[in-house]
C-alpha cells in the first residue's frame, strides 16, 4: 500500500491520517519492530521509518539521542530496509525519512529499488530540496515511488508551488520554524502554511513538528490531511524501563492520537 492510499482511505472516512515516526534500530532492531507493531495495532495509518544518520541537523535532542543509540548498536542501511519490509507486512503504508547522504552513499537508484522491493512507498527527505533532487526525481518516477518534500513557514509562494509540483503522494508541511521535538502548544503558523500549500496542490498535506497528544492531533486534524508524530513516540521508548514497556507506551500514545485524528469526524459530520 502506498501512503497516498492510506491518506485517501482516511479522507474517505472523513478524517485525517495518522503518521507515526520511529528511527530504525532503536531501541534495538527487534525493539523497533515491536514498537512499530504497537503503532500498527493502535491505529497508525502511515509509518515513517527514520534512517539514523550521524549529523541530523533538522532533529532536536530526542530524535538525536535515539539515532545516536541506533548507530552505536551498528544499525546499517540494510537493517533499515529489513525494518521497512517487516513493517509493510503489518498492513500499514511505510515511508522512509532520511537525510540525503546515506542515500547517495548507497546509490540513489539502488536505494530506490531496494526500498521498492521491501514494500516501502517512498521517501521523506528533510535536507533534499527539489532543486538538488534530479536523480531522485527520475528514479522515483520510474519506480512509482512517493517523493515527499517539505514546505516551511518561510517558503515563498513560488517555492511552495515548485516544491509541491515536485512532490508525489503527499506534502510534508513543517509547521514551525525549528527542529523536531514535542511542543507545549502546536503552531499558529501551521494552518496558514497549510492554506498557502493547498492553493498550489491537490495532494494531501501532512503536518509535522511538535504534536505530542490526542488533543493536539485533533487540532491539527481540523485543517490538515495528516498528523505526523515523531518525537513524542520516540520519547515513549527513551523513557521506558524495558522494550516491552516502551512499545506498550508508544501503543497507548498511538491510540490516543488515533482518537484525536478521528475527533473532527465526530464533531463535524
Amino acid at each position: 500500500m502506498r501512503s497516498a492510499d492510506a491518506y485517501a482511505a482516511a479522507r474517505g472516512q472523513g478524517r485525517a491520517a495518522l503518521v507515526g515516526y520511529l528511527p530504525a534500530g532503536f531501541p534495538s532492531y527487534g525493539g523497533c519492530i515491536e514498537a512499530l507493531r504497537a503503532l500498527a495495532d493502535n491505529g497508525v495509518d502511515v509509518v515513517e521509518i527514520g534512517l539514523p544518520y550521524s549529523d541530523p541537523v533538522l532533529d532536536g535532542p530526542t530524535i538525536q539521542a535515539a539515532a545516536e543509540r541506533s548507530l552505536r548498536h551498528g544499525t546499517r542501511i540494510t537493517d533499515v530496509l529489513r525494518t521497512v519490509e517487516a513493517t509493510a507486512a503489518m498492513d500499514v503504508a511505510v515511508v522512509v525519512m532520511t537525510y540525503w547522504n546515506p542515500v547517495l552513499a548507497y546509490g540513489v537508484e539502488r536505494f530506490a529499488a531496494d526500498l521498492d522491493a521491501a514494500g516501502g512507498s517512498g521517501l521523506i527527505t528533510p535536507d533534499l530540496i527539489p532543486d538538488e533532487a534530479g536523480e531522485w526525481l527520475a528514479v522515483s518516477e520510474n519506480l512509482d515511488l512517493e517523493r515527499i518534500f517539505l514546505v516551511a513557514p518561510s517558503s515563498t509562494p513560488a517555492r511552495i508551488a515548485a516544491t509541491t509540483a515536485a512532490c508525489r503522494g503527499w506534502v510534508y508541511a513543517a509547521s514551525t520554524m525549528g527542529v523536531t521535538g514535542a511542543r507545549e502548544a502546536t503552531s499558529s503558523v501551521a494552518p496558514a502554511l497549510v492554506e498557502r500549500t493547498r492553493a498550489s496542490t491537490e495532494l494531501p498535506i501532512g503536518v509535522g513538528l511538535g504534536v505530542s497528544n490526542g488533543s493536539q492531533a485533533a487540532e491539527v486534524a481540523s485543517y490538515a490531511d495528516g498528523v505526523i508524530v515523531g518525537s513524542a513516540l520516540v520519547r515513549c521508548l527513551l523513557d521506558a524501563d524495558s522494550e516491552a514497556a516502551g512499545a506498550a507506551a508508544a501503543g497507548a500514545l498511538t491510540a490516543d492520537l488515533a482518537r484525536g485524528v478521528r475527533t473532527r469526524a465526530v464533531v463535524s459530520p
Binding site: N101, D127, A152, T156, R159, A162, M177
Partner: peptide, 30 residues
C-alpha cells in the same frame, strides 16, 4: 520534470558537481 527557478547567480553555487544547497527548505528563503 519540475522547473525550479535558479536562486543564485550562475557559477556561484556550483563547482563542477560540487556545492549546491542540501539544507532544509526552511532555510532556503534566508
Amino acid at each position: 520534470m519540475t522547473e525550479i527557478a535558479a536562486t543564485t547567480e550562475p557559477g556561484d553555487e556550483r563547482f563542477g558537481p560540487y556545492g549546491g544547497r542540501y539544507v532544509p527548505e526552511a532555510l532556503i528563503a534566508a
